[in-house]
Nucleic acid binder design. Sequence first.
DNA 1: TATTATTGGTCAACATGGCTGACATAAATC
DNA 2: GATTTATGTCAGCCATGTTGACCAATAATA
Lengths: 173, 173
Amino acid sequence: MADINQMHKTSPRAQKSLYLRKQDLRRGIELMFFAYRDFTGEADDILSRLGLGRAHHRVIYFVGRQPNMTVSDLLSILKITKQSLSRVLSHLVAEGYIHQEQGARDKRQRLLSLTEKGLVLEEKLTDVQCKRFASAFSACGGDAVAGFQDVLANLINEDERADLRKRYPDLFE
Amino acid sequence: MADINQMHKTSPRAQKSLYLRKQDLRRGIELMFFAYRDFTGEADDILSRLGLGRAHHRVIYFVGRQPNMTVSDLLSILKITKQSLSRVLSHLVAEGYIHQEQGARDKRQRLLSLTEKGLVLEEKLTDVQCKRFASAFSACGGDAVAGFQDVLANLINEDERADLRKRYPDLFE
DNA sequence: TATTATTGGTCAACATGGCTGACATAAATC
DNA sequence: GATTTATGTCAGCCATGTTGACCAATAATA
């Protein structure tokens, strides 16, 4: 929670905490823009050489994280239309990155998993992004990492945060 | 920097800091994805009702932040091709959000600024994003905000970070 | 002054990845 | 048996990125 000792260090008329000034909020906006672009940049480069895009990456990432998930699961994580997903997913299946298997309980379901080829690519992509985080985290220290996670979690819509908490209990510690 | 006291709380074989474990790095990846999506979502909704997209938003935002900037300046911030920018910029000029003025020193330059209409939209868009940040920041406190900023800054490519430091000295405190 | 570089723009074509709408099929469920 | 669910497909539209070619005005420089 806000530390009361950090307040009132500006002029008497400035009632807000230091980090709630307009310029600090704008800094948040800007840092998100620049950081997100670079965070995705390296992976985008690898993907484009393979004729794939960021949409393919998301599918590979989340299927890798949760093997044997259904298409429905993936749709509710990605929040795109099934037509959009279908285009990307079909491509990944055709190219041999993703394996589909009929559900045992519900035979309509296609359970998705990475093939060996998909796993190799997933590891490569996750690795470059993890390295970037490892470098940033090391440079900032554990307290900063905790703050980073806390703020990002609170930027997520409340209802979605609740969904995510159920789906990925470890996402918010 | 890394707090040595946070280490070695897991099994003897785990040598890494707690926040450098694979699962923590993956959490970073995932939080960035979900947070960025929701961070841009509300603004996207407002824009789409006006027949505009996120690309228009970026132009409006950065021109609002730095009035009378040149097209070159904008290109080097956005890092897109001038053809891509041209399409979006022409549209914004035609719709009366952006004003172009011939440069005094260099008459080739088009100095960009927001019109009254552009300013109104910029404030509306910045406001919804600032509110989200204000809410997240308040929920987390000042130390978390500092950590958030620190990590994001370190996710940015080093050379770009140097450029940004020159362009926007207040971006990194 | 003549040449070159910079700033900004245009046109055309293409790719990615969102979207909507309409429709089909198999399987589960009521 | 009727309905809902899970999934897929086709067709087309839109936003926004890309490349390549080319042009004009102006600034900087040899």
